[in-house]
Nucleic acid binder design. Structure first.
Lengths: 326, 326
DNA sequence: TTGTATGCGTTATCAG
DNA sequence: CTGATAACGCATACAA
């Protein structure tokens, strides 16, 4: 069933049907005739042919580092909501934490198969920036601050600063930190710097043996908690760069009968689902993940319909969730 | 940049370039010339035009009830892995637990924008079945058993039976059950029936006040645990149809200083991430979610390239994770 | 092996 | 307001 057959059945020209579909000039009479035929036949225009003509695919490419993460799935949910409402669809590309795959996907999307790209950033290497700059379509980066494009990100620095401040004010002084690679500016650099600056404010000198770096997985929390405890007899708190890492640390503490928060206080970032169920519940930071997705998708769609709007950088707030683990 | 320009630059016909792209007859000489030009120009064929001709989009529609769920995101990860390796892309449609949206998406996908559909089923109403049957492209249902198409699902019944049996053998007799709507055959009916049959095997008569039904969210666990405890003074265990529900129940128990497993034992299904971190850790069932996604995607792609292969129903196994909560 | 010509299903242009 | 017609970029039947 194509536009010509519909036209014949309705006794009009294909062009008239096209106008009907795209709200062009059309007499009420023909409009009705076409509506009737389309209703009866259940005709649906071929989006490929439309795309071939209009260069619009109504598809948005969303590149994420992994799907089975509380925070990312929330961002994706926010994006999906907006896209659905506006008649767009989401092409989901999962890199499984392989940076190079991000570039691969960007280049794949470049073939005009999407109208725009949303990149949930972890690492933004020069290669990434080059790939993005070569893009002819609008794009937006979520979760990382960058000057090469519109971006929506979280106030990681202040969140870490205030959370560390809170821990210190609770009486802890020998605080260990389990972070992630500094290639990730948001999570690796900013959260750590917030932590360090809070220490400095309280005249606490951070010892090297208290600062650890690991992966984004639970294992890292487990192993680094072990390492921190073995080297620092006075350790009384651990701040982890993500809730997932904190969960790993908690696992180690539990297995070794170390009481939270009496022996060791612990806190994370991201307000993962388990945080409130654990006992003691986990002190953490709520970021506006879903909102990040909503804002990002909304901006991107605006940019697609109106390419002249200037890129913006939007910093979202946070909330310290003061639970029992500190 | 299109196929004609490449042809001109390489001094060949557009058809030759097309053959180069599709491994058709071509002399080595021309092959090299075309390769050179394509390499230099960075030419990428328009997938829309290809689709218009070939009717193949290399897109797979994946319909899911929600994205921020441990189990579902694992299935999606498995699907994504296979699709990537085979040069397909995933169009992700999130229904946010609205059944009607599933039908909407199925109908949207029907416009030939995808080569196949993967439906992560919750509820399969007659309307769903009709929408699926109207489909001209291959599709597969994951997580639910059905005779209308290929399906890959979990052995929910036996898992529930064995888990309940295990709980009973641990000495519990007054076991409450928090389930979900029976519209969901896999989770709502099969798990409950496994539970009931295990009771029967041990000559335990299930009292109505011990069987609850709620939503898939934590709230349901919290509220129904409260209800169970208020009506059943002898209650000594709670089996929840999902880990998420179990987490809600645990929250209620913790808040009311009810000791797990001494006062009340508790168990769930799905081996969610928190299950191992909780203390006591949660007894649960491991299902092969990622494998389910992998198998589903693999089968679908096979079916796309070879439409004649018969539909199959594949039942995946499970593993009881015996943790401390029972 | 190669090239020419045609059509996939739309939409934009233009003349009416 | 309407309709004929020419693209969009590619793959294939057919002729060579």
């Amino acid at each position: 069933m194509n536009i010509n057959q519909i036209a014949k059945l309705a006794g009009v020209s294909p062009a008239a049907v096209s106008r009907y579909l795209n709200d062009g000039y059309l007499s009420d009479e023909k409009r009705k005739a076409i509506a009737k035929v389309i209703d009866e036949t259940g005709y649906i225009p071929s989006s490929q042919a439309q795309t071939l003509r209009t260069k619009k695919t109504k598809l948005i490419g969303v590149i994420i580092p992994k799907i089975d993460s509380d925070s990312i799935s929330q961002v994706v949910a926010g994006i999906g909501e907006v896209l659905n409402n506006k008649g767009y669809k989401m092409l989901l590309a999962n890199t499984d934490n392989h940076d190079e795959k991000e570039i691969e996907f960007i280049n794949t999307f470049k073939q005009n198969i999407v109208d725009g790209i949303i990149l949930l950033g972890t690492v933004l290497t020069p290669k990434h920036k080059k790939a993005l700059k070569d893009l002819t379509m609008p794009y937006v980066v979520l979760g990382q601050q960058t000057d090469i494009s519109a971006c929506i990100y979280h106030d990681d620095y202040t969140a870490a600063y205030e959370l560390a401040d809170y821990i210190i004010n609770k009486g802890h002084k020998n605080i260990g930190y389990i972070g992630v690679t500094e290639n990730d500016i948001a999570v690796g650099v900013n959260r750590k710097q917030g932590f360090l600056d809070a220490l400095e404010k309280h005249d606490i000198k951070p010892s090297k043996s208290l600062i650890k770096t690991g992966s984004f997985y639970m294992d890292s929390g487990y192993e680094n908690a072990k390492a921190l405890l073995s080297k620092n007899k006075k350790l009384d708190a651990i701040l982890c760069a993500t809730d997932t890492i904190a969960l790993g640390a908690i696992k180690y503490l539990n297995e070794n009968n170390i009481k939270i928060p009496d022996d060791i206080a612990i806190a994370g970032f991201g307000e993962s689902k388990p945080s409130s169920i654990l006992s003691p519940s986990l002190t953490t930071v709520h970021f506006y993940y879903r909102e990040c997705g909503v804002e990002g998708a909304t901006f991107l769609l605006n940019k697609i319909t109106n390419p002249d709007i200037p890129d913006k950088a939007m910093k979202l707030g946070f909330e310290i969730i003061k639970n029992q683990s500190v």
